[in-house]
Simulated assay, not measured.
Amino acid sequence: MSKIITETPRLIIREFNLDDVQAVYDFNADERVNLYTGDAGVVKSLADAERIIRDIWLNEYLQFGYARWAVVLKETNCVIGFCGFKNDYRIDETDIGYRFAPEY
Rank of each mutant, 00 (worst) to 15 (best):
D39W: 15
D55H: 09
F27R: 01
T76N: 11
A40V: 09
R68Y: 13
W69P: 04
I96C: 10
E60C: 11
D20M: 03
R54G: 03
W57F: 15
F16Q: 00
V79N: 03
V42K: 11
C83V: 08
W69L: 07
A23N: 02
A23C: 02
E103Y: 13
N17L: 00
Y104W: 15
V33D: 07
S2Q: 11
K74W: 07
N59T: 14
G41A: 06
E50N: 10
D19C: 07
D39L: 02
A70W: 04
N34G: 13
I80S: 04
S2D: 09
S2I: 02
P9H: 08
T94D: 08
R90M: 13
R68D: 10
T76E: 12
Y98H: 09
A49Y: 01
R51S: 14
D26W: 03
R10Y: 07
N77P: 02
G84K: 02
I96G: 08
A29Q: 11
V79H: 01
A40S: 14
Y98I: 08
T37M: 11
Q22H: 10
F85W: 15
Q63C: 11
F27S: 04
I13N: 00
D55T: 06
F16G: 00
R99D: 01
T6L: 15
L73T: 01
M1I: 11
R10K: 14
Y36Q: 06
S45E: 10
E75P: 04
A101W: 08
D48T: 01
E31V: 13
Q22C: 03
R14Y: 02
A40F: 10
Y25P: 01
E7P: 07
A70K: 02
Y25H: 03
E31N: 12
F16R: 00
K44R: 15
V21C: 05
V24H: 06
I12E: 02
D88R: 14
G65K: 05
E15H: 11
L35C: 09
G84N: 02
V24C: 09
F82P: 00
V42H: 08
I96P: 05
V79Q: 00
S45G: 11
D30N: 14
G97E: 07
A40D: 10
F27L: 06
D26V: 02
L46N: 05
I13G: 00
L11F: 12
A70F: 03
I5M: 08
G41M: 05
E75C: 07
L62D: 15
L11H: 03
E15S: 04
D26Y: 03
V33T: 15
G38T: 05
R99S: 10
V72G: 00
V24R: 04
N17C: 10
V71P: 05
L58K: 04
